[in-house]
Computed example of a mutant assay.
Amino acid sequence: MTDDRLTAAVRALIDRYDPEGLLGMGAPDDEYDPEVRDLTALVRGGEEITADVVGSVWNRWFNGVSDWCTRRPEQVREVAAALEDLRDRR
């Protein structure tokens, strides 16, 4: 999978969940680009992608004020599993 396709797949995943509800409120399509970049780097890397790893990325970008990880832990687990699956398919 090319870098562009991988980034697009990670963006589609995050946009589908819209963890902060920002896209649903009319935020621009690139709203989650910083998070997508970091999550894409995880897919390219060797570290296991767990819910805790995804939560760490998310909380860093939202300065610890996001409640997505505690409000929707099943989504965070699903995102982590989907990212691992992307790794296996690239």
Rank of each mutant, 00 (worst) to 15 (best):
M1N: 06
M1R: 06
T2Y: 00
D3I: 02
D3H: 03
D3R: 07
D4Q: 13
R5N: 14
L6G: 07
T7E: 11
T7F: 13
T7R: 15
T7V: 15
A8H: 06
A9V: 05
A9I: 09
V10M: 02
V10S: 05
R11V: 13
R11I: 12
A12Y: 00
L13W: 10
L13R: 09
L13M: 13
L13V: 11
I14E: 01
I14T: 09
D15W: 04
D15Q: 09
D15R: 13
Y17F: 15
Y17T: 06
D18A: 09
P19T: 10
E20N: 06
E20I: 10
E20A: 14
G21S: 09
G21H: 07
G24F: 07
M25D: 09
G26K: 03
G26Y: 01
A27N: 07
A27L: 11
A27Q: 08
P28W: 01
P28E: 12
D30I: 04
E31P: 02
E31N: 00
Y32K: 06
P34S: 08
P34W: 05
P34F: 08
E35S: 03
E35V: 15
E35K: 09
R37M: 05
R37I: 08
R37E: 13
D38P: 00
D38K: 02
L39G: 03
L39S: 04
L39K: 02
L39T: 07
T40W: 04
L42G: 07
R44S: 05
R44L: 14
G45C: 06
G45Y: 00
G46A: 12
G46F: 02
G46R: 14
G46V: 10
G46H: 09
E48S: 13
I49K: 05
I49Q: 04
I49R: 07
T50H: 07
A51Y: 02
A51N: 08
D52N: 00
V53Q: 11
V53L: 11
V54L: 07
V54T: 06
G55W: 03
G55N: 07
S56P: 00
S56K: 10
V57W: 01
V57R: 01
W58G: 03
N59H: 05
N59E: 12
N59D: 15
R60Q: 10
R60W: 11
W61L: 12
W61F: 15
W61M: 07
F62W: 14
F62M: 14
F62R: 13
N63Y: 13
N63K: 13
N63T: 13
S66G: 03
D67T: 14
W68T: 05
W68A: 11
C69W: 01
C69N: 11
C69Y: 02
C69Q: 10
T70D: 09
T70V: 05
T70I: 03
R72P: 00
P73F: 04
E74C: 02
E74S: 13
E74H: 12
E74T: 13
Q75N: 15
R77N: 04
E78S: 14
E78P: 01
V79D: 04
V79N: 01
A80Q: 08
A80M: 07
A80K: 05
A81W: 00
A81K: 11
A81N: 10
A82Q: 12
A82R: 15
A82M: 06
A82P: 03
A82W: 00
D85Q: 12
D85N: 11
D85L: 10
L86V: 10
R87V: 08
R87P: 04
D88V: 09
R89M: 01
R90I: 14
R90T: 14
